[in-house]
Design a protein around this nucleic acid. Structure first.
Length: 426
DNA sequence: TCTGGGGTCCTAGGACCC
DNA sequence: TCTGGGGTCCTAGGACCC
């Protein structure tokens, strides 16, 4: 085994940090960012956490607290976060032998080419550069496996004395720290597993390291066994510098207002299907199956309804209009909702194939050339004038059901008409 | 009393991640 | 009034093949 080394670098309270970039006066104020539909808190700064705001807290339950404590509240601005993420990854490429973009705010770096004694110094430079070039504060975890790098990253976050960097390369220090690291914080050990682990006497990551791999495999399958070996420093999970081909694409949204009519549902699924088509085309893929689902509010005691329908496409396609047609068929099949009000719907594409490998239907297919030319034109116009410049009429014009984003910041870095304004006086 | 031995594919459900 | 939106992988069991 060669001397592997990975780093996990991530943005601190990433969405909140992105919002702070263009509102410097928020630097010391608590900030939170809400999920789609302004539903729950999904990102909180340290100041917001200190006020007791938890991950996933419904906004309507903490609204008063936020007003009282002058918490800055934002809707999600994925365009901004995605662009900042792209900039950060571009920086990482210059430091690492290979980079795996793991999520919008986390990347694994392959540091095997850097001598062990120099890795922390390098991490310091990287953090400083990311801060200087993007403004986003980060933490770095270093270890001989991805699972250890991930744990190290969490340790760097939790222990302010570490200065944002934790290195678990040294076996002695590693063991000491793993013994103080609760097993529920380990990457791959979820809320279903850790109570079962505690029942086996496993409380910390260090306890897990000392277990018999065969016993862990029996109770937690190979997934659990891999985690154990990774914590021992034996790499079982490779760095994926090339993103594997997508297996499915979903566009699902809660409604800003409940939907009670078939027309409303048809507009919504047409909107989602069209958007799903855009994602397909950006990846050069086509879908052979399309599913539609809709359900009522699952939290508030309203009459319950939940249904889905899957449509076969005659041939795998990325044509937005063909997807809308299939989504409409699906929506009509699951209608009516038996008196329930619909709170959410979605479109899911499965069985994705590369568009240039998609077999053509012998009978009943469309004119694929023509459809492809039209979609290319639509994509070009929307790229230039903004998404939604051209839509399908089936998506509707008024859209009373549209998901709420009532506190969204401008798309500062990607839209000319939303550029930040600087004023100077002298 | 006793009923083969090897496969593949698909699906649903569970668990996990951010 | 009000509670997110994406993904992945593994396993067991059923259906089927020769």
């Amino acid at each position: 085994v060669t001397d592997c080394s990975f780093a996990l670098i991530d943005g601190n309270s990433f969405y909140c940090s992105c919002e702070r970039l263009f509102e410097p006066k928020l630097a010391t104020r608590p900030v939170i960012v809400l999920s789609n539909n302004d539903g729950c808190a999904i990102a909180r700064t340290a100041e917001a956490k200190a006020l007791g705001i938890r991950m996933g807290d419904p906004f309507f339950k903490i609204r008063d607290l936020c007003r009282r404590e002058r918490v800055a509240v934002y809707s999600s601005n994925y365009t901004l976060y995605g662009d900042m993420s792209r900039r950060m990854n571009w920086i990482y490429e210059g430091w690492a032998r290979a980079v795996e973009t793991y999520s919008i705010d986390e990347s694994f770096l392959d540091l095997s080419h850097i001598r062990p004694a120099e890795r922390v110094e390098m991490a310091r430079d990287l953090r400083a550069t990311v801060k200087r070039w993007t403004g986003v504060p980060t933490c770095v975890g270093i270890g001989p496996t991805k699972t250890l790098a991930k744990a190290a990253n969490a340790m760097a976050k939790n222990d302010s004395e570490l200065g944002g960097i934790c290195d678990l390369t040294d076996p002695g220090e590693r063991q000491a720290r793993l013994d103080r690291f609760h097993v529920s914080e380990v990457w791959g050990v979820g809320p279903r597993s850790w109570p079962k682990m505690e029942a086996l006497g496993v409380r910390t990551a260090g306890d897990l390291v000392r277990m018999d791999p065969r016993q862990i495999r029996m109770k937690f399958t190979v997934v659990g066994e891999r985690t154990l070996h990774e914590l021992r420093g034996v790499p079982c999970v490779d760095l994926e510098s090339v993103a594997p081909q997508r297996k499915g694409i979903a566009v699902t949204r809660s409604f800003g207002r409940p939907v009670t009519t078939l027309e409303g549902l048809l507009e919504a699924v047409a909107t989602y299907a069209f958007r799903a088509g855009e994602k397909l085309r950006r990846h050069g893929l086509a879908a052979a199956h399309l599913s539609v689902f809709a359900h009522s509010n699952l939290h508030n005691g309203d009459p319950h309804f939940s249904a889905g329908a899957t449509e076969d496409l005659i041939e795998a396609t990325s044509d937005g209009l063909a997807l809308i047609a299939a989504a409409s068929r699906g929506a009509r099949r699951l209608w009516p909702p038996r008196g329930a009000k619909l709170a959410k719907a979605g479109v899911i594409l499965d069985d994705l194939v590369r568009a240039d490998h998609a077999p053509a239907a012998l009978i009943g297919g469309r004119d694929r050339e023509k459809a492809a030319r039209m979609m290319a034109a639509v994509d070009a116009v929307n790229a230039r004038f903004g998404r939604g410049a051209i839509i399908s009429a089936a998506a509707g014009m008024k859209k009373p059901w549209t998901t709420k984003f009532e506190m969204r910041s401008p798309r500062y870095t990607t839209r000319v008409d939303e550029l930040p304004m600087a004023r100077a006086s002298w």
